[in-house]
Design a protein around this nucleic acid. Sequence first.
RNA 1: GGCGCAUUCGUCUAGCGGCCUAGGACGCAUCCCUCUCAAGGAUGAGACCACGGGUUCGAAUCCCGUAUGCGCUACCA
Length: 501
Amino acid sequence: MTEKARTRFAPSPTGKPHIGNIRTAIYSYLLARHTGGQFILRIEDTDRKRFDEEALQAIMDGLRWIGIEWDEGPEVGGPYAPYFQSERLDIYKQHAEELIAKDAAYYAYEKPRTEEERQSMEKNPQLSLSFSRQWREATEEQRKAAEAEGIKPVVRFKVPLEGTTTVPDIIVKPPVVQNSTIPDHILIKSDGFPTYHLAAMVDDHLMNVTHIMRGQEWLSTAPLHVMIYQAFGWQMPMLVHPPVILNPPGKAGKLSKREGAVYVGQFRDLGYLPEALLNYLVLLGWSYDDHTEIFSMQDLIEKFDVTRIQPTPARYSLDKLDWTNAFYINHILTQEDFARRCLPFLAEAGLITQAEAVNPGDKMPYISKVCGLIKDKVKILSEVPAEIDFMFKPANELEYEADLVVGKNESKEAAAKILEAAIASLEKLPQEQFTTLNIKENLEKLSDEMLGEKKRGLLFWPVRIALCGRKNSPDASAMIEAYGMEGTRERYNIAIAKLRA
RNA sequence: GGCGCAUUCGUCUAGCGGCCUAGGACGCAUCCCUCUCAAGGAUGAGACCACGGGUUCGAAUCCCGUAUGCGCUACCA
Protein backbone atom coordinates (compact mmCIF):
# COMPACT_ATOMS: atom_id res chain seq x y z
CA MET A 1 0.00 0.00 0.00
CA THR A 2 2.99 2.25 0.18
CA GLU A 3 3.17 2.14 -3.58
CA LYS A 4 1.61 5.03 -5.42
CA ALA A 5 -1.77 4.05 -6.72
CA ARG A 6 -3.13 5.28 -10.01
CA THR A 7 -6.88 5.03 -9.91
CA ARG A 8 -9.64 6.14 -12.14
CA PHE A 9 -13.29 6.96 -12.09
CA ALA A 10 -14.80 5.95 -15.40
CA PRO A 11 -18.45 6.90 -15.57
CA SER A 12 -20.56 6.56 -18.62
CA PRO A 13 -22.36 9.84 -19.25
CA THR A 14 -25.85 8.46 -19.52
CA GLY A 15 -27.51 10.10 -16.55
CA LYS A 16 -27.06 12.21 -13.46
CA PRO A 17 -24.38 11.12 -11.01
CA HIS A 18 -25.86 8.79 -8.40
CA ILE A 19 -24.37 8.96 -4.92
CA GLY A 20 -23.50 5.28 -5.11
CA ASN A 21 -21.18 5.99 -8.00
CA ILE A 22 -19.92 9.14 -6.38
CA ARG A 23 -18.98 7.16 -3.32
CA THR A 24 -16.97 4.79 -5.47
CA ALA A 25 -15.30 7.80 -7.05
CA ILE A 26 -14.48 9.15 -3.61
CA TYR A 27 -12.93 5.86 -2.55
CA SER A 28 -10.84 5.79 -5.72
CA TYR A 29 -9.77 9.35 -5.20
CA LEU A 30 -8.82 8.73 -1.59
CA LEU A 31 -6.81 5.67 -2.50
CA ALA A 32 -4.84 7.67 -5.04
CA ARG A 33 -4.30 10.66 -2.77
CA HIS A 34 -3.48 8.55 0.26
CA THR A 35 -0.67 6.85 -1.59
CA GLY A 36 0.48 9.98 -3.36
CA GLY A 37 -0.61 8.67 -6.73
CA GLN A 38 -2.90 10.08 -9.40
CA PHE A 39 -6.62 10.09 -9.93
CA ILE A 40 -7.95 9.94 -13.46
CA LEU A 41 -11.35 10.82 -14.82
CA ARG A 42 -12.17 8.90 -17.96
CA ILE A 43 -15.42 9.14 -19.83
CA GLU A 44 -16.83 5.87 -21.12
CA ASP A 45 -19.01 7.13 -23.91
CA THR A 46 -19.00 4.09 -26.13
CA ASP A 47 -22.74 3.72 -26.01
CA ARG A 48 -23.73 6.29 -28.56
CA LYS A 49 -27.44 5.77 -28.07
CA ARG A 50 -27.38 6.73 -24.44
CA PHE A 51 -24.85 9.56 -24.49
CA ASP A 52 -26.03 12.69 -22.69
CA GLU A 53 -24.07 15.92 -22.78
CA GLU A 54 -25.76 17.27 -19.66
CA ALA A 55 -24.90 14.14 -17.75
CA LEU A 56 -21.24 14.68 -18.52
CA GLN A 57 -21.37 18.20 -17.12
CA ALA A 58 -23.30 17.04 -14.07
CA ILE A 59 -20.70 14.38 -13.35
CA MET A 60 -17.84 16.86 -13.47
CA ASP A 61 -19.76 19.44 -11.44
CA GLY A 62 -20.71 16.82 -8.88
CA LEU A 63 -17.16 15.62 -8.40
CA ARG A 64 -15.79 19.12 -8.04
CA TRP A 65 -18.57 20.15 -5.74
CA ILE A 66 -17.81 17.36 -3.34
CA GLY A 67 -14.14 18.22 -3.40
CA ILE A 68 -12.60 15.90 -5.95
CA GLU A 69 -10.13 17.21 -8.52
CA TRP A 70 -8.84 14.85 -11.15
CA ASP A 71 -5.21 14.90 -12.17
CA GLU A 72 -5.92 13.69 -15.66
CA GLY A 73 -9.05 13.77 -17.72
CA PRO A 74 -11.52 16.12 -19.40
CA GLU A 75 -10.66 19.81 -19.20
CA VAL A 76 -7.29 19.13 -17.60
CA GLY A 77 -5.72 16.76 -20.13
CA GLY A 78 -2.86 14.50 -19.23
CA PRO A 79 -0.16 12.24 -20.67
CA TYR A 80 -2.60 9.55 -21.75
CA ALA A 81 -5.10 11.76 -23.56
CA PRO A 82 -7.67 11.57 -24.95
CA TYR A 83 -9.78 10.63 -21.95
CA PHE A 84 -12.98 10.16 -23.88
CA GLN A 85 -13.32 6.62 -25.13
CA SER A 86 -15.17 7.79 -28.21
CA GLU A 87 -11.93 9.46 -29.27
CA ARG A 88 -9.90 6.30 -28.78
CA LEU A 89 -11.69 4.04 -31.23
CA ASP A 90 -8.57 3.27 -33.25
CA ILE A 91 -6.80 2.10 -30.15
CA TYR A 92 -9.50 -0.41 -29.37
CA LYS A 93 -9.69 -1.62 -32.94
CA GLN A 94 -5.97 -2.13 -32.96
CA HIS A 95 -6.10 -4.10 -29.74
CA ALA A 96 -8.98 -6.20 -30.95
CA GLU A 97 -6.92 -7.08 -33.99
CA GLU A 98 -4.03 -7.96 -31.79
CA LEU A 99 -6.24 -10.38 -29.93
CA ILE A 100 -7.50 -11.89 -33.17
CA ALA A 101 -3.94 -12.36 -34.33
CA LYS A 102 -3.19 -14.12 -31.07
CA ASP A 103 -6.19 -16.37 -31.60
CA ALA A 104 -7.78 -14.93 -28.48
CA ALA A 105 -10.67 -13.32 -30.32
CA TYR A 106 -12.59 -13.86 -33.53
CA TYR A 107 -15.18 -12.40 -35.87
CA ALA A 108 -18.73 -13.54 -35.37
CA TYR A 109 -21.55 -12.94 -37.82
CA GLU A 110 -24.60 -13.96 -35.82
CA LYS A 111 -27.80 -11.93 -35.73
CA PRO A 112 -28.28 -9.93 -32.55
CA ARG A 113 -30.46 -11.68 -29.99
CA THR A 114 -34.01 -10.55 -29.83
CA GLU A 115 -35.36 -9.44 -26.50
CA GLU A 116 -37.22 -12.76 -26.21
CA GLU A 117 -34.15 -14.80 -26.95
CA ARG A 118 -32.19 -12.85 -24.44
CA GLN A 119 -34.69 -13.44 -21.71
CA SER A 120 -34.97 -17.12 -22.32
CA MET A 121 -31.20 -17.41 -22.38
CA GLU A 122 -31.00 -15.70 -19.02
CA LYS A 123 -32.66 -18.73 -17.53
CA ASN A 124 -30.64 -21.15 -19.60
CA PRO A 125 -26.93 -20.57 -19.36
CA GLN A 126 -26.14 -23.47 -21.67
CA LEU A 127 -28.10 -21.86 -24.47
CA SER A 128 -26.42 -18.53 -23.87
CA LEU A 129 -23.02 -20.18 -23.92
CA SER A 130 -23.56 -21.96 -27.21
CA PHE A 131 -25.15 -18.90 -28.79
CA SER A 132 -22.09 -16.85 -27.97
CA ARG A 133 -19.82 -19.48 -29.49
CA GLN A 134 -21.57 -20.06 -32.81
CA TRP A 135 -18.74 -18.59 -34.82
CA ARG A 136 -15.90 -19.66 -32.58
CA GLU A 137 -14.84 -22.52 -34.84
CA ALA A 138 -16.13 -21.13 -38.11
CA THR A 139 -14.16 -21.90 -41.25
CA GLU A 140 -12.76 -19.37 -43.63
CA GLU A 141 -15.48 -20.22 -46.15
CA GLN A 142 -18.26 -19.63 -43.67
CA ARG A 143 -16.83 -16.24 -42.81
CA LYS A 144 -16.45 -15.33 -46.47
CA ALA A 145 -20.03 -16.32 -47.11
CA ALA A 146 -21.30 -14.17 -44.28
CA GLU A 147 -19.12 -11.33 -45.38
CA ALA A 148 -20.53 -11.66 -48.90
CA GLU A 149 -24.01 -11.35 -47.46
CA GLY A 150 -22.98 -7.99 -46.12
CA ILE A 151 -23.26 -8.92 -42.45
CA LYS A 152 -21.25 -6.67 -40.22
CA PRO A 153 -19.42 -8.87 -37.72
CA VAL A 154 -18.78 -8.37 -34.05
CA VAL A 155 -15.54 -9.40 -32.42
CA ARG A 156 -15.92 -11.90 -29.62
CA PHE A 157 -13.40 -12.91 -27.01
CA LYS A 158 -12.29 -16.50 -27.14
CA VAL A 159 -12.73 -17.57 -23.56
CA PRO A 160 -10.48 -20.47 -22.58
CA LEU A 161 -12.60 -23.59 -22.23
CA GLU A 162 -10.53 -25.13 -19.49
CA GLY A 163 -9.27 -24.09 -16.11
CA THR A 164 -10.39 -21.51 -13.60
CA THR A 165 -9.92 -17.81 -13.21
CA THR A 166 -9.42 -16.00 -9.93
CA VAL A 167 -10.40 -12.38 -9.43
CA PRO A 168 -7.82 -10.57 -7.29
CA ASP A 169 -10.17 -8.40 -5.29
CA ILE A 170 -9.00 -6.73 -2.11
CA ILE A 171 -12.24 -6.23 -0.24
CA VAL A 172 -14.18 -9.29 -1.21
CA LYS A 173 -13.16 -12.92 -1.05
CA PRO A 174 -11.54 -13.44 -4.46
CA PRO A 175 -14.08 -15.33 -6.56
CA VAL A 176 -12.89 -18.36 -8.47
CA VAL A 177 -14.88 -19.37 -11.54
CA GLN A 178 -14.80 -22.17 -14.05
CA ASN A 179 -13.77 -20.69 -17.39
CA SER A 180 -16.16 -22.99 -19.20
CA THR A 181 -19.14 -21.17 -17.67
CA ILE A 182 -18.23 -17.83 -19.20
CA PRO A 183 -19.64 -16.97 -22.63
CA ASP A 184 -17.55 -15.48 -25.41
CA HIS A 185 -18.35 -11.85 -24.76
CA ILE A 186 -18.46 -9.24 -27.47
CA LEU A 187 -15.43 -6.97 -27.59
CA ILE A 188 -16.31 -4.86 -30.62
CA LYS A 189 -19.90 -4.22 -31.61
CA SER A 190 -21.01 -4.37 -35.21
CA ASP A 191 -21.00 -0.57 -35.32
CA GLY A 192 -17.27 -0.65 -34.68
CA PHE A 193 -17.53 0.64 -31.13
CA PRO A 194 -15.91 -1.37 -28.38
CA THR A 195 -17.86 -2.71 -25.42
CA TYR A 196 -16.93 -1.85 -21.89
CA HIS A 197 -15.01 -5.11 -21.54
CA LEU A 198 -12.45 -4.24 -24.15
CA ALA A 199 -12.33 -0.47 -23.85
CA ALA A 200 -12.03 -0.30 -20.10
CA MET A 201 -9.35 -2.96 -19.88
CA VAL A 202 -7.29 -1.51 -22.71
CA ASP A 203 -7.49 1.94 -21.20
CA ASP A 204 -6.78 0.79 -17.69
CA HIS A 205 -3.66 -0.91 -18.93
CA LEU A 206 -2.55 1.89 -21.22
CA MET A 207 -3.15 4.47 -18.52
CA ASN A 208 -1.19 2.44 -15.99
CA VAL A 209 -4.07 2.05 -13.62
CA THR A 210 -2.95 0.09 -10.57
CA HIS A 211 -6.32 -0.42 -8.90
CA ILE A 212 -9.48 -0.96 -10.87
CA MET A 213 -12.18 0.24 -8.56
CA ARG A 214 -15.79 0.03 -9.60
CA GLY A 215 -19.17 -1.01 -8.23
CA GLN A 216 -19.79 -4.54 -7.09
CA GLU A 217 -22.16 -5.07 -10.01
CA TRP A 218 -18.96 -5.65 -11.98
CA LEU A 219 -17.78 -8.50 -9.85
CA SER A 220 -19.56 -11.08 -11.94
CA THR A 221 -17.87 -10.02 -15.14
CA ALA A 222 -14.51 -9.52 -13.52
CA PRO A 223 -13.21 -12.98 -14.53
CA LEU A 224 -13.67 -11.99 -18.15
CA HIS A 225 -11.61 -8.90 -17.54
CA VAL A 226 -8.88 -10.90 -15.90
CA MET A 227 -8.82 -13.20 -18.95
CA ILE A 228 -8.58 -10.24 -21.30
CA TYR A 229 -5.57 -8.97 -19.42
CA GLN A 230 -4.05 -12.43 -19.56
CA ALA A 231 -4.70 -12.75 -23.29
CA PHE A 232 -2.76 -9.55 -23.88
CA GLY A 233 -0.03 -10.74 -21.59
CA TRP A 234 -0.40 -7.72 -19.35
CA GLN A 235 0.12 -7.51 -15.65
CA MET A 236 -3.18 -7.58 -13.79
CA PRO A 237 -3.94 -4.57 -11.58
CA MET A 238 -5.64 -5.02 -8.23
CA LEU A 239 -9.40 -5.11 -8.34
CA VAL A 240 -11.59 -3.31 -5.83
CA HIS A 241 -15.33 -3.78 -5.85
CA PRO A 242 -17.08 -1.67 -3.22
CA PRO A 243 -20.65 -2.79 -2.61
CA VAL A 244 -23.73 -1.03 -3.86
CA ILE A 245 -25.78 1.23 -1.61
CA LEU A 246 -29.13 -0.21 -0.64
CA ASN A 247 -32.50 1.39 -0.06
CA PRO A 248 -33.43 2.45 3.50
CA PRO A 249 -34.58 -0.25 5.94
CA GLY A 250 -37.63 -2.13 4.85
CA LYS A 251 -37.16 -1.36 1.18
CA ALA A 252 -35.59 -3.91 -1.08
CA GLY A 253 -32.97 -3.35 -3.72
CA LYS A 254 -30.39 -0.78 -4.70
CA LEU A 255 -30.91 2.81 -3.65
CA SER A 256 -33.46 4.09 -6.10
CA LYS A 257 -34.84 7.39 -7.28
CA ARG A 258 -38.03 6.69 -5.41
CA GLU A 259 -36.23 7.26 -2.13
CA GLY A 260 -35.97 11.00 -2.58
CA ALA A 261 -32.60 12.48 -3.31
CA VAL A 262 -30.09 10.13 -4.91
CA TYR A 263 -28.16 12.40 -7.25
CA VAL A 264 -25.47 14.75 -5.97
CA GLY A 265 -27.16 17.75 -7.53
CA GLN A 266 -30.26 17.10 -5.50
CA PHE A 267 -28.31 17.14 -2.27
CA ARG A 268 -26.69 20.39 -3.26
CA ASP A 269 -30.07 21.94 -4.00
CA LEU A 270 -31.50 20.76 -0.70
CA GLY A 271 -28.69 22.46 1.14
CA TYR A 272 -26.45 19.64 2.18
CA LEU A 273 -22.88 20.75 2.57
CA PRO A 274 -20.43 18.99 0.28
CA GLU A 275 -18.12 18.19 3.17
CA ALA A 276 -21.00 16.65 5.12
CA LEU A 277 -22.18 14.53 2.21
CA LEU A 278 -18.61 13.44 1.64
CA ASN A 279 -18.22 12.55 5.29
CA TYR A 280 -21.45 10.61 5.35
CA LEU A 281 -20.85 8.77 2.10
CA VAL A 282 -17.37 7.67 3.03
CA LEU A 283 -18.59 6.27 6.32
CA LEU A 284 -21.33 4.36 4.57
CA GLY A 285 -19.22 1.28 4.10
CA TRP A 286 -15.91 2.33 5.54
CA SER A 287 -14.62 3.14 8.98
CA TYR A 288 -11.36 4.29 10.44
CA ASP A 289 -11.78 3.09 14.00
CA ASP A 290 -14.51 2.43 16.53
CA HIS A 291 -15.41 6.02 17.34
CA THR A 292 -14.36 8.71 14.86
CA GLU A 293 -17.34 10.14 13.01
CA ILE A 294 -16.16 13.42 11.58
CA PHE A 295 -13.51 13.56 8.87
CA SER A 296 -12.37 16.41 6.70
CA MET A 297 -11.06 15.62 3.24
CA GLN A 298 -7.56 16.03 4.66
CA ASP A 299 -8.28 13.54 7.44
CA LEU A 300 -9.65 11.09 4.92
CA ILE A 301 -6.68 11.35 2.61
CA GLU A 302 -4.41 10.79 5.55
CA LYS A 303 -6.34 7.91 7.07
CA PHE A 304 -7.95 6.12 4.18
CA ASP A 305 -7.27 2.42 3.89
CA VAL A 306 -8.95 0.57 1.02
CA THR A 307 -8.80 -2.76 2.75
CA ARG A 308 -11.20 -1.45 5.37
CA ILE A 309 -14.00 -0.95 2.90
CA GLN A 310 -16.90 -3.09 4.01
CA PRO A 311 -17.72 -5.97 1.66
CA THR A 312 -21.39 -5.81 2.65
CA PRO A 313 -23.86 -3.46 0.99
CA ALA A 314 -24.95 -0.68 3.35
CA ARG A 315 -28.37 0.85 3.65
CA TYR A 316 -28.81 4.52 3.04
CA SER A 317 -30.12 6.45 6.03
CA LEU A 318 -31.30 10.01 5.78
CA ASP A 319 -31.22 10.43 9.56
CA LYS A 320 -27.49 9.98 9.79
CA LEU A 321 -26.88 12.24 6.82
CA ASP A 322 -29.03 14.94 8.41
CA TRP A 323 -27.17 14.57 11.66
CA THR A 324 -23.84 14.85 9.89
CA ASN A 325 -24.95 17.91 7.98
CA ALA A 326 -26.30 19.57 11.11
CA PHE A 327 -23.05 18.81 12.88
CA TYR A 328 -21.05 20.56 10.19
CA ILE A 329 -23.35 23.56 10.23
CA ASN A 330 -23.39 23.77 13.99
CA HIS A 331 -19.82 22.88 14.90
CA ILE A 332 -17.52 23.14 11.93
CA LEU A 333 -18.69 26.17 9.98
CA THR A 334 -18.03 29.69 11.21
CA GLN A 335 -21.01 32.01 11.36
CA GLU A 336 -19.67 33.96 8.41
CA ASP A 337 -19.13 30.85 6.33
CA PHE A 338 -22.55 29.51 7.20
CA ALA A 339 -24.21 32.79 6.24
CA ARG A 340 -22.36 32.86 2.95
CA ARG A 341 -23.65 29.41 2.09
CA CYS A 342 -27.18 30.47 2.99
CA LEU A 343 -27.13 33.31 0.48
CA PRO A 344 -28.45 31.39 -2.54
CA PHE A 345 -31.23 29.90 -0.45
CA LEU A 346 -32.25 33.29 0.90
CA ALA A 347 -32.38 34.61 -2.64
CA GLU A 348 -34.35 31.62 -3.80
CA ALA A 349 -36.94 32.40 -1.13
CA GLY A 350 -37.04 36.05 -2.16
CA LEU A 351 -35.64 37.32 1.14
CA ILE A 352 -32.75 38.98 -0.62
CA THR A 353 -32.19 39.69 -4.30
CA GLN A 354 -30.20 37.51 -6.65
CA ALA A 355 -27.68 40.32 -6.94
CA GLU A 356 -27.30 40.46 -3.18
CA ALA A 357 -26.78 36.72 -3.09
CA VAL A 358 -23.77 37.18 -5.30
CA ASN A 359 -22.55 40.35 -3.67
CA PRO A 360 -24.29 41.16 -0.39
CA GLY A 361 -22.11 44.20 0.26
CA ASP A 362 -22.97 46.04 3.46
CA LYS A 363 -25.99 43.82 4.01
CA MET A 364 -23.66 41.00 4.92
CA PRO A 365 -23.21 41.85 8.60
CA TYR A 366 -26.96 41.75 9.15
CA ILE A 367 -27.41 38.58 7.07
CA SER A 368 -24.58 36.97 8.93
CA LYS A 369 -26.06 37.89 12.28
CA VAL A 370 -29.50 36.67 11.31
CA CYS A 371 -28.26 33.37 9.92
CA GLY A 372 -26.22 32.97 13.06
CA LEU A 373 -29.47 32.91 15.02
CA ILE A 374 -30.46 29.56 13.62
CA LYS A 375 -27.09 28.04 12.95
CA ASP A 376 -27.55 25.50 15.70
CA LYS A 377 -31.06 24.43 14.86
CA VAL A 378 -31.07 23.94 11.15
CA LYS A 379 -30.26 20.62 9.49
CA ILE A 380 -30.08 21.65 5.87
CA LEU A 381 -29.65 25.03 4.22
CA SER A 382 -32.98 24.95 2.45
CA GLU A 383 -34.67 25.11 5.86
CA VAL A 384 -33.07 28.44 6.63
CA PRO A 385 -35.40 30.92 4.89
CA ALA A 386 -38.54 29.66 6.62
CA GLU A 387 -36.83 30.00 9.99
CA ILE A 388 -35.85 33.65 9.65
CA ASP A 389 -38.00 35.14 6.91
CA PHE A 390 -39.58 37.55 9.42
CA MET A 391 -36.23 39.15 10.06
CA PHE A 392 -36.18 40.36 6.49
CA LYS A 393 -39.66 41.85 6.56
CA PRO A 394 -40.55 45.39 7.62
CA ALA A 395 -41.89 45.53 11.17
CA ASN A 396 -45.43 46.28 10.09
CA GLU A 397 -45.64 43.20 7.91
CA LEU A 398 -45.51 40.76 10.78
CA GLU A 399 -48.83 38.98 10.93
CA TYR A 400 -50.00 37.46 14.19
CA GLU A 401 -52.88 37.53 16.66
CA ALA A 402 -52.59 39.62 19.80
CA ASP A 403 -53.48 36.55 21.87
CA LEU A 404 -50.30 34.84 20.77
CA VAL A 405 -48.26 37.56 22.44
CA VAL A 406 -50.10 37.18 25.73
CA GLY A 407 -48.86 33.66 26.32
CA LYS A 408 -49.40 32.67 29.93
CA ASN A 409 -49.82 36.22 31.09
CA GLU A 410 -53.04 37.22 32.74
CA SER A 411 -54.23 39.63 30.09
CA LYS A 412 -53.40 41.55 26.97
CA GLU A 413 -52.82 44.59 29.12
CA ALA A 414 -50.35 42.71 31.29
CA ALA A 415 -48.42 41.70 28.18
CA ALA A 416 -48.49 45.26 26.88
CA LYS A 417 -47.09 46.52 30.16
CA ILE A 418 -44.27 44.02 29.96
CA LEU A 419 -43.33 45.24 26.50
CA GLU A 420 -43.37 48.85 27.66
CA ALA A 421 -41.16 47.98 30.56
CA ALA A 422 -38.84 46.06 28.26
CA ILE A 423 -38.43 49.06 25.98
CA ALA A 424 -37.68 51.30 28.90
CA SER A 425 -35.22 48.88 30.37
CA LEU A 426 -33.40 48.16 27.14
CA GLU A 427 -33.09 51.84 26.34
CA LYS A 428 -30.82 52.17 29.33
CA LEU A 429 -28.24 50.03 27.54
CA PRO A 430 -25.67 52.18 25.74
CA GLN A 431 -25.21 51.40 22.06
CA GLU A 432 -21.83 49.71 22.52
CA GLN A 433 -23.24 47.44 25.20
CA PHE A 434 -26.16 46.30 23.10
CA THR A 435 -25.04 42.69 22.90
CA THR A 436 -26.99 39.47 23.27
CA LEU A 437 -25.44 38.74 26.60
CA ASN A 438 -26.11 42.18 28.07
CA ILE A 439 -29.61 42.23 26.69
CA LYS A 440 -30.29 38.88 28.27
CA GLU A 441 -29.03 40.08 31.66
CA ASN A 442 -30.95 43.29 31.36
CA LEU A 443 -34.21 41.51 30.66
CA GLU A 444 -33.66 38.87 33.29
CA LYS A 445 -33.11 41.53 35.87
CA LEU A 446 -36.24 43.31 34.75
CA SER A 447 -38.20 40.09 34.92
CA ASP A 448 -37.01 39.29 38.42
CA GLU A 449 -37.93 42.75 39.62
CA MET A 450 -41.28 42.85 37.90
CA LEU A 451 -42.50 39.30 38.27
CA GLY A 452 -40.21 37.64 40.74
CA GLU A 453 -37.63 34.97 40.03
CA LYS A 454 -38.59 31.81 38.24
CA LYS A 455 -41.27 33.66 36.35
CA ARG A 456 -39.06 34.62 33.46
CA GLY A 457 -41.23 32.83 30.96
CA LEU A 458 -43.94 35.40 31.61
CA LEU A 459 -41.68 38.19 30.45
CA PHE A 460 -39.71 36.46 27.75
CA TRP A 461 -42.71 35.06 25.94
CA PRO A 462 -44.23 38.40 24.88
CA VAL A 463 -40.79 39.91 24.48
CA ARG A 464 -39.91 37.17 22.00
CA ILE A 465 -43.22 36.78 20.17
CA ALA A 466 -43.55 40.48 19.48
CA LEU A 467 -40.31 40.24 17.53
CA CYS A 468 -41.19 37.32 15.31
CA GLY A 469 -44.95 36.91 15.40
CA ARG A 470 -44.85 33.18 15.81
CA LYS A 471 -44.46 30.43 18.32
CA ASN A 472 -41.04 29.10 17.48
CA SER A 473 -38.11 31.34 16.88
CA PRO A 474 -34.52 31.95 17.80
CA ASP A 475 -33.50 33.30 21.18
CA ALA A 476 -35.19 36.60 22.10
CA SER A 477 -32.06 38.45 23.20
CA ALA A 478 -30.21 37.47 20.05
CA MET A 479 -33.04 38.73 17.89
CA ILE A 480 -33.10 42.00 19.79
CA GLU A 481 -29.43 42.47 19.16
CA ALA A 482 -29.90 41.75 15.45
CA TYR A 483 -32.78 44.23 15.13
CA GLY A 484 -31.06 46.83 17.20
CA MET A 485 -32.87 49.12 19.66
CA GLU A 486 -34.60 50.94 16.87
CA GLY A 487 -36.06 47.88 15.20
CA THR A 488 -36.97 46.34 18.52
CA ARG A 489 -38.85 49.38 19.73
CA GLU A 490 -40.74 49.60 16.48
CA ARG A 491 -41.92 45.99 16.74
CA TYR A 492 -42.82 46.32 20.39
CA ASN A 493 -44.88 49.41 19.76
CA ILE A 494 -46.77 47.64 17.04
CA ALA A 495 -47.41 44.73 19.39
CA ILE A 496 -48.56 47.05 22.17
CA ALA A 497 -50.98 48.74 19.81
CA LYS A 498 -52.27 45.33 18.78
CA LEU A 499 -52.75 44.29 22.39
CA ARG A 500 -54.69 47.42 23.22
CA ALA A 501 -56.76 47.49 20.07
C1' G B 1 -32.96 -21.26 -13.03
C1' G B 2 -27.30 -20.72 -13.15
C1' C B 3 -22.93 -18.33 -11.29
C1' G B 4 -20.74 -15.08 -7.68
C1' C B 5 -20.47 -12.14 -3.22
C1' A B 6 -22.27 -11.07 1.54
C1' U B 7 -24.61 -11.97 6.71
C1' U B 8 -22.63 -8.14 14.51
C1' C B 9 -28.34 -3.56 17.94
C1' G B 10 -33.97 -0.67 13.47
C1' U B 11 -29.53 1.71 10.56
C1' C B 12 -23.92 2.72 9.85
C1' U B 13 -20.15 0.19 12.21
C1' A B 14 -15.73 -1.73 16.13
C1' G B 15 -14.16 -6.70 16.48
C1' C B 16 -9.35 -10.12 12.72
C1' G B 17 -9.25 -17.27 18.81
C1' G B 18 -9.23 -15.75 25.13
C1' C B 19 -9.43 -7.99 26.51
C1' C B 20 -16.84 -9.42 24.44
C1' U B 21 -21.59 -10.64 30.49
C1' A B 22 -20.00 -7.54 22.19
C1' G B 23 -17.70 -1.13 22.09
C1' G B 24 -19.06 3.62 19.34
C1' A B 25 -22.48 6.59 16.22
C1' C B 26 -27.51 7.75 14.14
C1' G B 27 -32.43 7.08 15.55
C1' C B 28 -35.63 6.19 19.95
C1' A B 29 -37.06 6.95 25.41
C1' U B 30 -36.42 9.51 30.12
C1' C B 31 -34.20 13.41 32.85
C1' C B 32 -31.33 18.16 33.25
C1' C B 33 -30.78 23.08 31.09
C1' U B 34 -34.64 26.56 29.30
C1' C B 35 -38.42 32.55 26.97
C1' U B 36 -40.45 28.69 22.25
C1' C B 37 -38.02 25.37 18.69
C1' A B 38 -33.40 23.53 18.53
C1' A B 39 -28.55 22.77 20.33
C1' G B 40 -25.95 20.90 24.64
C1' G B 41 -25.38 17.53 29.10
C1' A B 42 -26.82 12.85 31.62
C1' U B 43 -29.12 8.16 31.73
C1' G B 44 -31.55 4.07 29.43
C1' A B 45 -33.92 0.50 26.17
C1' G B 46 -32.01 -2.04 21.94
C1' A B 47 -27.57 -7.63 19.11
C1' C B 48 -29.08 -15.35 22.04
C1' C B 49 -22.97 -11.89 16.76
C1' A B 50 -28.74 -15.28 10.41
C1' C B 51 -29.48 -20.68 11.55
C1' G B 52 -27.35 -25.78 12.08
C1' G B 53 -23.11 -28.62 12.45
C1' G B 54 -17.94 -29.05 13.19
C1' U B 55 -12.34 -27.57 14.57
C1' U B 56 -10.30 -25.90 19.42
C1' C B 57 -8.93 -26.08 26.37
C1' G B 58 -11.65 -21.76 24.39
C1' A B 59 -15.26 -18.88 18.45
C1' A B 60 -18.79 -13.11 16.70
C1' U B 61 -13.83 -14.34 15.12
C1' C B 62 -11.50 -20.69 11.53
C1' C B 63 -14.16 -24.78 8.36
C1' C B 64 -18.70 -27.04 6.14
C1' G B 65 -23.89 -26.95 5.11
C1' U B 66 -28.78 -24.30 5.16
C1' A B 67 -31.50 -19.87 4.92
C1' U B 68 -31.82 -14.96 3.59
C1' G B 69 -30.14 -10.55 1.04
C1' C B 70 -27.62 -8.39 -3.00
C1' G B 71 -25.34 -8.50 -7.83
C1' C B 72 -24.59 -10.48 -12.72
C1' U B 73 -26.69 -13.57 -16.39
C1' A B 74 -27.25 -7.44 -23.38
C1' C B 75 -23.98 -5.79 -30.00
C1' C B 76 -25.67 -1.09 -21.52
C1' A B 77 -22.17 0.49 -18.72
